[in-house]
Design a binder for these strands. Structure first.
Lengths: 343, 343
DNA sequence: TATTTTTACGCAAACGTTTGCATTAGATTA
DNA sequence: TAATCTAATGCAAACGTTTGCGTAAAAATA
């Protein structure tokens, strides 16, 4: 007896059982036209010979790869790793695989990846745009190919597509209003890159809350950052400390800068939250470590991934492509911790 | 003229150019037997018709999917997201895709995933074992199928395979010795789950340093944890504080527990590092945020991913399967920060 | 019993690419 | 000029699965 080198195929099973490959295929797929007796037999034999269906052959024939692509700026940013986790979780339960790519925030690389993904490997793509991507032409091909897209977090503006976002305006408004209700009168804002819509929204939300509560608006209290890094936060904090009248509340567009503020302010002898209350954005793990613990916005990263996955798969399985573009806006939540607990 | 519904194929190009599909295929693959003139023509036409090779068909025919699978406990743990980032980075450059799965630290789910992955979707797999996986039978099939495996971090013991690890013993030794050199006489250790080899090694490294420097060894100073969570760290710290003679140095098996210790100790009025010096393990982002900044071990997560990727792809492309199992041990680095800066 | 329906399965093509083996025409050599 | 070689391309099979359609036998109906 010759040792079969390659793995067992439908054909092998068929020969062993004196059936045709098509019957085997249908039996394993639980096709109604196959008798229960045969199904049992096939199942047993398949088990016996350790049959593993060649999913590539299947994908090829069915023109369905059962996998989705994900393009993120970087995997090792906690927010994105949470989103990916949510994507994988739902996709796995639904029988889809998740293939990931990092754009490294480079539009060039994003375009490369997009090209790669157009070769039928994936049935849909979930994307968080690279920071410098303002032009969306490279995504148009997907529409032609009938491959659905879902964007999250950094989503295209003026481009009819599917998006999962949080309401940045509303969240920022909530955060700022919280500070106001805590008695802050002079609230600063460390803002993100204003060419990125989400940070623009956060700034607007801040402004809106200030206006609504008739606080005096001072342009100097807003400091825009490029990357909202820890280091940039330190610089902002130092600037604030030089003001003749130091802010008694600071709403930061992310948690990193909020942490910097707390640390720099404390070193300078300011009490948090008594002298200055601080609110961050994103609910990063550090927000529960920094002392005092940071009040922040839960941006629902994991759920964002789940929703993206859910929507994408719904679009993929909508064979007729009847679904219209959809934007899902997730509710955020203000998590109040000590950094804003004055009074 | 009828509008072609589906995407253009080699055949379409062939008909357009009065050539055979095989010539087109070879032309695009830059096969030497094809004249430069033809190659040019084909390239041009391909561009013109927006030809995208069907990579599934190609994978199917070549029996090469150009993709690797990664099984991690959870994506949203920073360590793993760094590793994945490293894996993706190298794989991308080499032309491989990365498909990720989360075992959620469940051996059952790990087995499910392993089964999934045996269907020729991936050419190799990188794995960090689920915490409760002590039996490796489910991986054996891969060897039969000629699919190479590379384990990292939590790797199998007594199982001949490829591994990327750090030298936990050496690292723990370094960390503990550092405390000793800083003048600590009574050094405690918050240990990880002792059924996990890496934590066992860390404990041994600690013990070895204690012995080498002739410090008196006290079993009570070692507290084993289950998950090394922040909360468990708090409990350990509280235990230490109850000792009649409180430790003047603590080596923690991870950064979370180290952070807990610092916070609990400070709240209790202890000075860090003057009264008690603290060293963590892993160089998590929080280690640079906690005050005082935490001395810790850089566990080279990103590089671990790169090495895993590099080794796996080397194994994949070693068609003859001549390579023997390999264990790569990465050098760690002690990052000294304020939490251990006494004297 | 003759006819129709149902049940259970087989046939064969198809998916798009790759590749070993022709094959042809032109170039080179004897 | 005949024989050999080389360069460039075509033929056709193959990869393993799925699926529309056909068909034989069994069951149901007339």
């Amino acid at each position: 007896m010759v040792m079969k080198q390659s793995r067992t195929t439908l054909k092998d099973l068929a020969e062993d059982l004196n059936l045709s490959p098509s019957t085997i295929s249908r039996a394993l797929a639980n096709h109604p036209a196959i008798s229960d007796a045969t199904k049992k037999k096939v199942q047993k034999k398949a088990e016996e010979l350790g049959f593993i269906p060649n999913s590539i052959a299947s994908s090829f024939r069915k023109k369905k790869s059962q996998s989705i692509g994900v393009i993120v700026p970087r995997i090792d940013i906690h927010f994105h790793s949470l989103v990916i986790s949510g994507i994988e979780e739902f996709a796995y339960k639904t029988g889809y695989n998740v293939t990931i790519f990092q754009s490294k925030d480079s539009t060039t690389r994003e375009k490369e990846i997009v090209k790669l993904l157009q070769n039928k490997m994936v049935e849909g793509v979930i994307i968080c745009l690279a920071i410098e991507t303002y032009d969306y032409d490279h995504f148009k091909k997907f529409k032609k190919l009938g491959v659905p897209l879902v964007f999250y977090d950094r989503v295209p503006s003026n481009y009819d597509t599917n998006k999962i976002v949080i309401n940045d305006f509303e969240s920022a408004f909530k955060a700022t209003e919280h500070l106001i209700k805590r008695g802050c009168k002079r609230i600063a804002h460390i803002a993100g890159n204003q060419s990125t819509p989400i940070f623009k929204e956060r700034l607007e939300g801040y402004k809106s809350a200030i206006r609504k509560h008739n606080l005096s608006f001072d342009e100097k209290l807003i400091i825009p950052c490029k990357s909202l890094s820890y280091e940039e936060g330190v610089q902002c904090a130092e600037s604030f400390l030089k003001f003749s009248s130091i802010p008694d509340g600071i709403f930061c567009a992310n948690d990193y800068t909020a942490v910097s503020v707390i640390q720099v302010f404390r070193k300078a002898g300011m009490r948090i939250p008594e002298d200055t209350a601080v609110v961050g954005f994103s609910n990063y793990p550090i927000s529960r470590v920094i002392e005092p613990h940071l009040t922040t916005i839960n941006d629902r990263a994991f759920q964002m991934g789940v929703e993206a996955s859910k929507l994408l798969i719904r679009l993929i399985e909508d064979e007729k492509r009847t679904l219209k573009s959809e934007t899902i806006s997730l509710e955020t939540e203000l998590i109040v911790r000590e950094s804003s607990m004055k009074d």
